[in-house]
């Protein structure tokens, strides 16, 4: 267990290479957007990070259901690892979104539905960690956090819908571009965007894998298994 599997090493290298490749592609081979300028290039990783975070939270909910059905603790490690990695990606999405919004809309924060939903998801999953830290027995912790992860993931669409409905009634005045990512993508931009989505999905799996090994080792250390 402690020794790193060869496959993971290969996967790490693959992840690093594809990430660097995508970064180079974005920096040097995508066109500069006509009104926003270079900062628009953050968009590729910004949306990809949000996507990866969302995927991780859905996986955490599914793993929670997996735990409640099978009662096997490794599902709990999956759930925990997915939530933690999802929080990191959510943080990346929010901060890069703010950096993008600052020069374009002249404000760090816009109460835009997707951004706000991501922020609320971060709060929900921070609460998930507070819940975990306040439970000691592994089985009970697994059971209650699984319930919370499932409830969280099913309220996310409701949250997004309600914030969007709220926004259509109180439209935010956004100067250039009209709305979030309202520029039209050229085929070249679209290709870079799809590649970024793929690369971030690989990155998500890689980080998740490492986090899962940590969770497993941590459990074995605590229970005294070898």
């Amino acid at each position: 267990m402690i020794n790193k599997p060869k496959l993971l090493t290969v996967f790490d290298i693959l992840t690093a290479l594809t990430l660097l490749g995508a970064l180079a592609l974005i920096l040097f081979w995508t066109p500069v957007e006509i009104t926003m300028g270079p900062v628009q290039k953050v968009f590729y990783f910004h949306v990809s990070a949000a996507w990866a975070g969302m995927l991780a939270f859905v996986a955490a909910g599914a793993a929670g259901a997996g735990y409640l059905i099978t009662r096997k603790l490794h599902w709990d490690w999956v759930s925990l690892s997915a939530v933690e990695v999802g929080l990191v990606f959510g943080l990346i999405a929010i901060l890069s979104g703010m950096i993008w919004a600052q020069p374009i809309w002249n404000t760090w924060w816009v109460w835009e539905p997707r951004l706000t939903t991501t922020a609320i998801m971060e709060l929900i999953y921070l609460a998930y960690f507070i819940l975990r830290s306040s439970l000691e027995t592994p089985e009970k912790r697994a059971r209650l956090s699984a319930v919370f992860a499932i409830i969280s993931v099913i309220t996310v669409p409701l949250t997004f819908f309600s914030i969007r409905l709220f926004r259509t009634i109180h439209p935010v005045v956004i100067a250039p571009g009209g709305g979030d990512s309202a520029f039209s993508m050229t085929p070249c931009m679209l290709r870079a965007f799809l590649i970024s989505l793929g690369v971030f999905t690989i990155l998500l799996v890689d980080l998740f894998w490492h986090r899962y090994r940590l969770a497993k080792l941590n459990y074995k250390n605590q229970t005294g298994e070898n």
């Binding site: 500069v32 957007e33 006509i34 300028g37 270079p38 900062v39 628009q40 953050v42 600052q102 020069p103």
Partner: peptide, 8 residues
């Protein structure tokens, strides 16, 4: 395009 290189 706007000069937003530092932001990028």
């Amino acid at each position: 395009p706007a000069n937003t290189l530092t932001d990028m």
